[in-house]
Simulated scan of single mutants.
Amino acid sequence: MLSSAPILTTTAPVGGTKPYVLLVDDHAPSLRQLHQVVKGAGHSCVVASSGALALSQCDVRRPQVIVTDLSMPNLDGRALAHWIRARYPSVPLILMTGEILDMPTLDSFRRTFTAVFRKPIDLDRFLECLDRLMPTESFLEPTLTYMPDCS
């Protein structure tokens, strides 16, 4: 049985000052699994069950990387990405989707997102990408703007 991931329900600061990954998905089982995978890989992470809760967390403390599902009610992954890009253009965004994307849509997403993963995601490839985007303990410059190619 999967342990419960902390679901963000307030705008209280989460996770101290350590860089963290913000995981966003309205599907609770997927969110719990992704939380376990990311945490198991050694990354600090916070989960949000909606785009609106993700925005609240970003207003409190900016994440190092945001991983979001595409299809969510109200504020979907695309709208969340536009909001994040407007306010924090250097924050890497990773998109996960179960939808079949045509080439024009995929090309559009690649201009907005650092990486796009089709569900079920290739965990090895996903974690490799995440590892490249997260700073190591010895390299925590707050002005870090390097965004490695995860395509």
Score class of each variant (00 low, 15 high):
46 V>P: 01
48 A>H: 07
58 C>V: 09
63 P>Y: 11
55 L>F: 06
48 A>V: 07
68 T>L: 09
47 V>W: 00
78 R>P: 01
48 A>F: 05
43 H>D: 05
45 C>W: 04
63 P>R: 07
48 A>L: 06
52 A>R: 11
51 G>R: 07
67 V>E: 00
72 M>Q: 10
62 R>K: 13
56 S>H: 10
63 P>Q: 08
77 G>E: 00
45 C>A: 15
73 P>M: 10
69 D>P: 04
62 R>W: 01
62 R>C: 08
70 L>G: 01
53 L>Y: 02
78 R>Y: 15
44 S>C: 08
52 A>D: 12
53 L>R: 04
53 L>P: 01
66 I>T: 15
61 R>T: 12
76 D>W: 07
52 A>L: 12
64 Q>I: 01
59 D>C: 13
52 A>W: 02
48 A>I: 04
48 A>C: 09
65 V>T: 06
57 Q>G: 03
68 T>G: 09
44 S>A: 15
75 L>C: 12
64 Q>F: 02
78 R>E: 14
50 S>P: 05
49 S>G: 14
73 P>D: 13
57 Q>S: 14
66 I>Q: 04
53 L>Q: 11
63 P>A: 12
61 R>N: 08
76 D>S: 10
69 D>L: 03
77 G>D: 03
60 V>W: 03
47 V>A: 15
73 P>E: 11
47 V>M: 12
46 V>E: 03
73 P>T: 06
46 V>Y: 02
75 L>N: 10
73 P>Q: 08
71 S>G: 05
71 S>T: 13
70 L>D: 07
48 A>T: 00
78 R>N: 13
44 S>Y: 02
74 N>Q: 14
78 R>A: 11
